[in-house]
């Protein structure tokens, strides 16, 4: 029993595990973005607008932003979008954080070109990137994703592809959860330095793949049991209400300002 009272001379080697933390963070943020869909209530202006209409206006706005060379148009659009974001319920901080991060990154990428051309003209790109990121984030926060995938029918995306997208979104959550649990298991069983990080992480990825194969078989059985015949039809609803008309007016105002400026 003496050995029990002896003090162990063991200090585990220190190790950087930023890779695990970052992976956990990425997986959690993807999962929480998907989970959030279930809690979107149709209260508030942007939440009530027809999803198909929102998707179409996103395409149109991004197209005009890409064409624009006018910094005043872009800056006023940016400020309008910031106001829109601030009106969102509780997610506005996140949207602005991501958009400003994208802006800063883009600025960093474009800035050296100032010295090549001796002109600040390329600095318009970060302003455009900011607007695009805000627009996409507003769309993804205020709309259920299954409504967005359904609206893709309007631009002739085939049903089979919408089917694949719908499954993909659900299984990013399911498989992400699986991967997360494996990483947690790896983390809590690790003392000191973790060797062979690459093969361990690759094994986790491989395991996720094998599980996904098994799940797809199970899923097909479940689908067939419920009468799946290989046809997947989604109908897009294009009935407009009063919110939609106001929304159309706002979008027309934004686009006409492109020509006006």
């Amino acid at each position: 029993m003496d050995w029990l009272f002896k003090e162990d001379d063991f200090t585990p080697k220190k190790d950087k595990d930023t890779f695990a933390d970052k992976t956990v963070k990425a997986l959690l943020s993807a999962a929480s973005n998907i989970r959030r869909q279930d809690f979107i209530e149709k209260k508030g202006f942007l939440y009530s607008v027809n999803p198909a209409l929102k998707l179409l206006s996103v395409f149109v706005l991004i197209f005009f932003i890409s064409l624009s060379k006018n910094i005043f148009f872009l800056l006023s659009l940016d400020s309008l979008l910031i106001i829109c974001t601030l009106l969102l319920k509780n997610s506005s901080g996140k949207v602005l954080y991501f958009s400003f991060a994208a802006f800063a990154f883009s600025l960093l990428m474009v800035f050296p070109s100032v010295f090549i051309y001796k002109s600040f003209s390329s600095l318009i790109i970060p302003v455009k990137v900011f607007a695009d990121i805000v627009i996409v984030n507003i769309l993804s926060i205020t709309t259920r994703w299954k409504d967005i995938t359904k609206s893709l029918k309007l631009i002739y995306v085939p049903d089979i592809f919408i089917f694949i997208l719908d499954i993909a979104i659900i299984y990013i959550y399911v498989l992400g959860d699986l991967a997360l649990n494996m990483i947690y298991a790896l983390k809590i069983r690790t003392i000191g330095k973790l060797d062979k990080k690459y093969s361990l992480l690759s094994n986790i990825i491989g395991n996720v793949f094998i599980q996904s194969k098994l799940m797809s078989d199970e899923m097909y059985s479940a689908m067939e049991l419920r009468g799946f015949t290989g046809e997947y039809k989604r109908e897009v609803n294009f009935k407009l209400n009063i919110y939609d008309f106001i929304f159309i007016l706002v979008i027309i105002f934004m686009i006409s300002s492109y020509f006006f400026f």
Binding site: K16, T18, F19, K22, T23, A26, L27, A30, I160, F163, I164, L165, D166, I167, A168, I169, I170, Y171, I172, V174, L175, G176, A179, K197, Y198, L201, I204, I205, V208, F209, S212, K213, M215, S216, D217, M219, Y220, M223, G230
Partner: peptide, 22 residues
């Protein structure tokens, strides 16, 4: 029978990009 695999394969290829390697 293998159709759902495409959707799940899409989820898998999305998740590969989430794995940060040292």
């Amino acid at each position: 029978k293998k159709m759902p695999m495409l959707g799940i394969g899409a989820a898998f290829s999305f998740l590969i990009m989430m794995f940060n390697l040292p």
